[in-house]
């Protein structure tokens, strides 16, 4: 299981961006079990990269290849399978269903391809300190709480790669460490890779490789 970047550059970036970047216009291979840290200042294309890897957008030159298949050749059905079985994501903008409860938001992901039984939702929520929020609509939860919901949601499915796009932007250090610990355990369970993009280095992520975008 590997994810390859082949000379990828967003079409809306000019060629200057490639100078100094360790990702754009490079040939890179990420394999299962790796912990990849991507340090990226604002505007360097961090969210674009995550969207490209998850197949949400394709405005890039070059190729992204999962195993042997180029994401450009994926049909909508292929993407559904890719996101259901192989790649999970915590997006910077969270994207929860505002009118559904926390429990429902997580269950909608879990039922698609359950890696954990339904009871695991409560267990994880308790562990991240949002156990009392399960019945609340997600739109009345704070950003920090919503961020933890998005993290738990991402951990409900099987995956080879877990993509994290500034997952702790609204969390304090203690909650962040707590959530990171949970994600590391879950990644280990699946022998999966984590690709973690953030503005700066975070000490409690035990990366095996680091790249500057």
């Amino acid at each position: 299981m590997q994810l390859q970047l082949q000379q990828v550059l967003p079409v809306y970036f000019d060629e200057n961006h490639r100078t100094g970047s360790e990702i754009w216009r490079q040939d890179l291979t990420f394999t299962k079990g790796e912990y990849i840290k991507i340090v990226a200042p604002s505007g360097s294309g961090k969210t674009s990269l995550m969207h490209f890897l998850y197949g949400m957008r394709n405005e890039y030159n070059g190729n992204i290849v999962y195993n042997t298949a180029d994401l450009r050749n994926y049909t909508p059905e292929d993407f559904a399978g890719y996101r259901k079985d192989h790649v999970s994501i915590v997006l910077q903008d969270l994207r929860l269903f505002p009118e559904q409860s926390v429990q429902e938001n997580i269950e909608l992901k879990r039922q698609l391809n359950p890696f954990h039984p339904a009871e695991k939702i409560r267990e994880m929520a308790e562990r991240l300190g949002i156990g009392n929020k399960l019945a609340s609509k997600s739109r009345i939860c704070s950003y920090g709480e919503q961020q933890r919901v998005a993290i738990i949601r991402a951990l409900m499915q099987p995956f080879d790669f877990l993509l994290l796009d500034e997952p702790f932007s609204h969390l304090d250090d203690k909650n962040s460490q707590n959530a990171m610990q949970l994600m590391l355990e879950e990644a280990k369970l699946r022998n999966a890779a984590i690709i973690f993009a953030d503005l700066e280095r975070i000490d409690w992520f035990p990366y095996t490789r680091i790249f500057h975008l």
């Binding site: 059905e77 993407f79 559904a80 992901k109």
Partner: peptide
């Protein structure tokens, strides 16, 4: 928005 989010989560468009 909701449908897009479902598709983004990996729901099959055909299903």
């Amino acid at each position: 928005d909701n449908l897009q989010l479902l598709l983004m989560m990996g729901y099959s468009p055909n299903w």
